[in-house]
Amino acid sequence: MEFNINRLIRLMKRDAIVYRKPIVLGIVAVFIVLILLMVSYAYDGGFFPEFFLVTRFNFSLLVGGLLLTTIIFWEFKSAAGRVHFLGIPASTLEKLVTRWTYTFLLFPLLCLLVFLLVYLISSSFILYKGNSEVFELLSDSLMAYWIVHPIVFMFGIWYNRYVAPKVVVSALLFAFGTVAVFFIMHRIFFNELYSGFALAEGLTVDPDPTFQFKVEGMMENIARFLGFVFVPLFFTVVSYFKLKEKQA
């Protein structure tokens, strides 16, 4: 794998020049939309203002960020664009890192910046319940983005056109497939709990409380590892190879 920081900077400079208009328009749009939404919903009787604030942030980060991720390799939508992008004098890793940086680092940072600005300004006239709750909600959406972004990023490389709807369909198929696989596994391993495909009637479960505690802890650790380490790493590595084997 080749990686040269100077080439990476040149590549980013090229992107900044070529896509100057959409970048400026995008940043301005994010600022305007977020500020309007946040300010308009900043206080609403009966609701927690921080909830509104964070929902706007979640919306802009998850929906906006993931939509941006689906189109970040927009050159792939045409054969001429693919020839052009793949022929740019830089390594696959450098090309991947530039687009990953825009969607995984810069866009969330931009959203955070706007959020903090609005939060700090609005704090002067709105009494928030407490910073901890706001930032807890904030970290939830950042964690969700951490997990989902690499998957969408990979699909952005894989598909050439209509990436967003294809990602939704793929995600639904994947979700249904996963549920089906888990159900079948459950049906096979816990055969005695079932009568046909339904749970057996009159079944009583009296688990050992210490066993349940242990299993819960173990499952949480496994889920954390899968979600925060395995999934992002796996899909980022797959993204690299998908880009490497991408053809015009």
Partner: peptide, 20 residues
């Protein structure tokens, strides 16, 4: 598609998309 090779190749395609 090594970077060093791509730095030494210029391909003028018949169909191209130039930025505005």
């Amino acid at each position: 598609r090594k970077a060093a090779m791509l730095e030494d190749i210029f391909f003028l395609s018949e169909e191209y998309e130039l930025p505005s």
